[in-house]
Nucleic acid binder design. Structure first.
Length: 422
RNA sequence: GGAGAGGUGUCCGAGCGGUUUAAGGAGCUGGUCUUGAAAACCAGUGAUGCGAGAGCACCGUGAGUUCGAAUCUCACCCUCUCCGCCA
């Protein structure tokens, strides 16, 4: 959510930012509602002030034996008027809030222009695309032949876009999760969280999944709960409606969770393999920081996520996301893309974003610089550290041998109990 | 799922329709005393949001009754105790 004061004071600046996103802007409509709201607010507060004053006099008048009937009659009228205006105010608040929750974040000035992911800018690269002296297989074929990935069974027991992992496949998934968690906790200073996989509506609003993208989420019937699309949601909302102190910051959390996405609108894309599933595993990094440090923290966040891919020896590149590909909540975003031989290109395996105060404002996450200072919003950041299923896919493909077996990256040996899947 | 109790400021806790600008205590801040500290005593002190300000709002959340609600009514949420069920 943006600051309504910013919209009031610099509407043109906000409009220009939204225009960069090619986002239809409802700023004028919003400003009109805001003006109306403030007028009504002023009026109703005047009336309430009078009501309070008279109410305080009533016991005194009664004590002195005065006649309260005419006062009550007058106050009754006043009360009705206040109720009407309060109702009016509620409706305006709701309309304003509804608009505010649907306005995307303002992109940082350094975010490159562009419309699609083709316009993203490569920042750096690690290693080179893997070369094979044989025809490499896709991970879905490797996985099936090795008996470690089973899409058919998943379809039988659940449906499309689910996978059953078996044997060393299940072990590999678990190894990757543990490797990621251990690195981020032991080497990068993140505190581990294991969150609930369901959250209520307000949490989803807090991080920005709702109200705009409800069709992307799985809703639990007869409850107000949603399956989390990412651990970002429960972990960010850990501090909702809370005022932290400066000594608490920065807060850095790492969380493994299963993630659930309806993938509305992606029918026909990435239908084979582990790339796009309704349920997948992810290790997520979340930070709460003071505003003046958030962009440094974004850089280190990306480095922390990169470290796990480096550790696994997987070729990747980092791209800076252009304004058209930025997403609703981010002010700036880097993607890390891993080399996927079956795609013949780099595939997103991590997104690292600085939301500035956009989520903090929605979720009410503040901090005080000192006891005497007024509370202000923290900046929140998060990034995948990294997607587990896609990592397994990348390992299978990049570490495959001519005979269809797969080498285990050295970093995972302690977790795997074998150096090859065959 | 059933029965009961309860959600009040940083914390404990009073409050049962109108001098409540939320009693009292703890804590915190300052002071007196002291070589220093503790204790004692004195004084000060709720947080937050909106607003340029006056002011308005805020006693779990939302709605209602009333001239007036922390206080009464209804719904919901959460916590605790006991029972049932369960990994």
């Amino acid at each position: 959510m943006l600051d309504i004061k910013l919209i009031r004071q610099e509407p043109e600046k906000v409009k220009a930012a939204l225009a960069r996103r090619k986002e239809e802007d409802k700023i004028d409509e919003l400003l009109e509602l805001d003006k109306k709201r403030r007028d009504v607010l002023y009026e109703v507060e005047q009336l309430k002030s009078k009501q309070n004053t008279v109410s305080k006099q009533i016991p005194q008048i009664k004590k002195e034996g005065g006649d309260t009937a005419p006062i009550f009659a007058e106050m009754k009228e006043l009360s009705e008027k206040i109720k009407g205006l309060d109702q009016n105010l509620r409706e305006l608040d709701e309309a304003i809030n509804s608009l505010m929750l649907r306005i995307p974040n303002i992109p940082n000035e350094t975010v490159p222009d562009g419309d699609t992911d083709e316009d993203n800018v490569e920042v750096r690269k690690f290693s080179e695309p893997t070369k094979f002296d044989f025809e490499p297989k896709a991970h879905w074929d490797l996985g099936e032949e090795l008996g470690i990935l089973d899409a058919a069974s998943a379809a039988k027991i659940t449906g499309a876009r689910f996978t059953v992992y078996k044997g060393l496949g299940a072990r590999l998934e678990r190894a990757v999760i543990n490797y990621f968690l251990n690195m981020h906790t032991d080497k990068h200073g993140y505190t581990e969280i294991f969150p609930p996989y369901m959250v209520h509506r307000n949490s989803m609003v807090g991080t920005g999944q709702l109200p705009k993208f409800e069709e992307d989420a799985f809703k639990v019937m007869d409850t107000d709960y949603f399956l989390i699309p990412t651990a970002e949601v429960p972990v960010t909302n850990l501090y909702r409606e809370q005022i932290l102190s400066a000594e608490d910051l920065p807060i850095r959390h790492v969380a493994y969770s299963a993630c659930f996405r309806a993938e509305a609108g992606s029918a026909g894309r990435d239908t084979r393999g582990l790339i796009r599933q309704h349920q997948f595993n992810k290790v997520e990094l979340v930070k709460f920081v003071e505003p003046e440090h958030s962009y440094e923290e974004l850089e280190t966040l990306v480095l922390d996520a990169e470290a796990v891919l480096k550790g696994l020896g997987l070729p990747y590149r980092v791209v800076k996301i252009c304004v058209g590909d930025l997403g609703f909540t981010a002010a700036m975003k880097y993607d890390i893309e891993v080399w996927m031989p079956s795609y013949g290109r780099y595939v997103e395996i991590s997104s690292c974003s600085n939301f500035e105060d956009f989520q903090a404002r929605r979720a009410g996450i503040k901090y005080k610089k000192s006891q005497a200072d007024k509370p202000q919003f923290v900046h929140t950041l998060n990034g995948s550290g990294v997607a587990v299923g896609r990592t397994v896919a990348a390992i299978l493909e990049n570490y495959q041998n001519a005979d269809g077996s797969v080498r285990i990256p050295e970093a995972l040996l302690p977790y795997m109990g074998t150096d090859v899947i065959r």
